[in-house]
């Protein structure tokens, strides 16, 4: 279940006088088990890139192969979309059904599954996002809290049992606790659900990227600057040159290192920085 993107380019309105180039010659491969972050400044082509992955955006030039399905020519969109689940920004705004159960069942129903299978999947999905199935299934999605709505929307995608989960800024518009809860949820979906093997996430929040991802693709003006591990990426000022901030932990560690309080400055999680400070304390 891998994704191969080769020399992908995309232009909005190719006929228009002023072409808007969204993607330029992007090549990227994603393997099983990856937690890939796609980062870049606003308008760098992140969303265009991910909507290619489940065939919402047609390939103009270049090549994409998702688990053996070639997206260049004609392909079975239903099959592809059951493999690549897409959670858009503010997914709670796409809820529509009378009850939570019906809304989550929308995807599986469209896949043409039988009723029994749909019910099992809906129950599993609602529980997987940390909600109480019995308590919530008959409620209207519109009477839930914002956080619950977002979970239900994610469940709607999970219920299709995708192998690749794509999320466009899953934590946008949430408070710090909500952000952490959703990120922990995504991580637990990846680790506990057998079906979700790979997660691809668009993010503006470098703290999340540093903490949760194992690979980062950095985009700038539609071009792929490079694919890094978080440790490589936050080693120098590459992200800042692309208009993004370094993770809070790295910024703190750099200040501390400049004052000679610690030795290492590429610290990606709070735990790491706490351990480093404790170690540094002993030297002092």
């Amino acid at each position: 279940m891998s994704i191969e993107i080769q020399n992908l380019s995309y232009t909005y309105d190719p006929k228009a006088k002023f072409k808007k180039i969204a993607l330029k010659d992007v090549s990227l491969s994603v393997e099983d088990g990856d937690f890939l972050a796609i980062v870049g400044h606003t308008g760098s082509g992140k969303s265009t890139l991910v909507t290619h992955l489940n065939g919402l955006t047609k390939v103009q030039s270049g090549k994409i192969i998702v688990d053996g399905i070639d997206l260049t020519g004609k392909f079975d969109a239903k099959k592809l979309r059951s493999k690549v689940g897409m959670v858009f920004q503010y997914p709670e705004y796409q809820l529509f059904a009378e009850t939570v159960q019906l809304d989550v069942a929308f995807g599986p129903k469209n896949l043409g599954l039988d009723e029994e299978e749909i019910n099992v999947r809906v129950k599993d999905a609602i529980e997987a996002v940390g909600l109480d199935f019995e308590q919530i299934k008959d409620k209207s999605p519109f009477e839930l809290s914002g956080g619950q709505m977002r979970r239900v929307a994610i469940a709607g995608v999970i219920a299709m049992r995708p192998e690749i989960l794509v999320l466009d800024e899953p934590t946008a518009g949430l408070d710090p606790k909500g952000k952490r809860d959703i990120m922990e949820l995504v991580l637990s979906l990846k680790n506990t659900l057998k079906t979700v093997k790979t997660v691809i996430m668009i993010s503006h929040n470098m703290d999340e990227v540093a903490r949760y991802c194992n690979k980062v693709a950095l985009l700038k003006d539609g071009e792929l600057v490079g694919v890094y591990t978080p440790a490589q990426l936050f080693e120098d000022d590459t992200v800042e040159k692309c208009g993004l901030k370094l993770p809070t932990t790295v910024r703190l560690a750099r200040v501390l290192k400049a004052r000679g309080l610690i030795e290492n400055d590429c610290l990606l999680t709070e735990e790491e920085i706490v351990a480093e400070i404790a170690k540094g304390g002993r030297h002092a």
Partner: peptide, 16 residues
């Protein structure tokens, strides 16, 4: 713009 987004989201759930 919002309509485009919603259509894409439902298409992702295999809406026909």
């Amino acid at each position: 713009e919002e309509t485009d987004k919603i259509i894409n989201a439902q298409k992702s759930r295999c809406a026909d």
